[in-house]
Computed example of a mutant assay.
Amino acid sequence: MSSQHIVLIGFAGTGKSTVGKQLASRLGCASTDVDAEIVKREGEEIASIFANRGESAFRAAETEALEAVLSSRETLVVATGGGAVLAPVNRELILRSGFVVALKADPERLIERVSQDPDRPLLQGNVRERTYKLLEERKHAYDFAHLTIDTTSLAVDEVVERIAQAIQR
């Protein structure tokens, strides 16, 4: 397994996908989104996988997609799903494969960012209640990152700049 990827972890709405694309562009490498990889591999939208096969089937597909993406020989900026870090095997994969950046944000900002998105099955229903509950459950889930950035009041290019500087050190 190579040790050259930059892996973005964090709760839904912290900016992993958006930051990932811009960071890859800045670094001159490719970016990939693990959730998009799952959809491609499974031939089914994430919300549909949750609805039809349940969260455990989704998590199994997530680990397979993560392994496939992280085994790439080319340097990638990898945006993971918010819950990808919950499985110990995924945390090990992520840590082994490169520089890990956790993005976090104020709960109210997260709610604002995700509340209009139907593609977030774990946040359906009362978004505020679900967000606070999941944040509490995952309080320390992202603590293993090499770098943590609070994106609450930062522009995407500011987040990208901080990560690029950290990588160059």
Results as ranks from 00 to 15, higher is better:
Asn126Ala: 11
Val160Trp: 02
Lys40Phe: 13
Val156Glu: 00
Glu62Met: 04
Ile167Ser: 06
Phe58Ser: 05
Ile94Pro: 05
Ala60Lys: 14
Glu92Trp: 09
Arg96Thr: 12
Lys21Ala: 09
Val77Cys: 03
His5Gln: 13
Gln124Asp: 09
Lys104Val: 14
Thr131Val: 13
Phe144Cys: 12
Ala47Asn: 11
Asp117Lys: 02
Arg138His: 14
Ser72Gln: 13
Pro118His: 13
Val160Gly: 00
Met1Ala: 15
Asp106Gln: 13
Glu112Ser: 07
Ile9Glu: 03
Val114Asp: 04
Asp119Leu: 11
Ile46His: 03
Ala102Pro: 01
Ser25Glu: 15
Lys21Asn: 06
Ser153Ile: 10
Leu95Lys: 14
Val101Ala: 04
Val19Thr: 11
Asn90Arg: 04
Ala57Gln: 05
Gln165Pro: 04
Phe58Pro: 00
Ile46Asp: 00
Ala12Ser: 15
Ile9Gly: 02
Ile46Ala: 00
Leu76Ser: 01
Gly15Ser: 03
Ala145Pro: 04
Val114Glu: 00
Pro118Thr: 10
Ala105Trp: 01
Glu137Pro: 05
Glu161Pro: 08
Ala57Asp: 07
Ala24Gln: 01
Ala60Arg: 14
Ser115Leu: 06
Lys40Tyr: 12
Asp35Phe: 02
Leu70Lys: 06
Gly54Asn: 08
Arg109Trp: 06
Val101Gln: 01
Gln124Met: 11
Arg96Cys: 10
Ala164His: 11
Ser3Trp: 15
Ala60Glu: 14
Ile6Thr: 10
Pro118Trp: 10
Leu93Phe: 12
Glu92Ile: 12
Gln4His: 15
Val7Pro: 05
Arg138Asp: 14
Ala155Leu: 12
Val39Lys: 00
Ser97Glu: 08
Ala60Ile: 10
Ile149Cys: 08
Thr151Tyr: 05
Lys133Arg: 15
Asn52Cys: 11
Ala105Tyr: 06
Gly20Tyr: 04
Gly28Val: 10
Lys104Thr: 15
His140Trp: 11
Asn126Cys: 10
Gln124Leu: 11
Glu74His: 15
Leu93Trp: 08
Lys16Phe: 05
Asn52Arg: 15
Val127Ala: 07
Ser17Gly: 11
Glu37Leu: 07
Glu62Ile: 03
Pro107Asp: 07
Gly81Ala: 03
Ala84Tyr: 04
Arg113Cys: 01
Glu44Lys: 15
Glu64Ile: 13
Val89Thr: 14
Gly98His: 06
Pro88Val: 08
Ser56Trp: 09
Phe58Ala: 06
Ile6Arg: 00
Val7Met: 07
Glu158Thr: 09
Phe99Gln: 08
Ala47Leu: 11
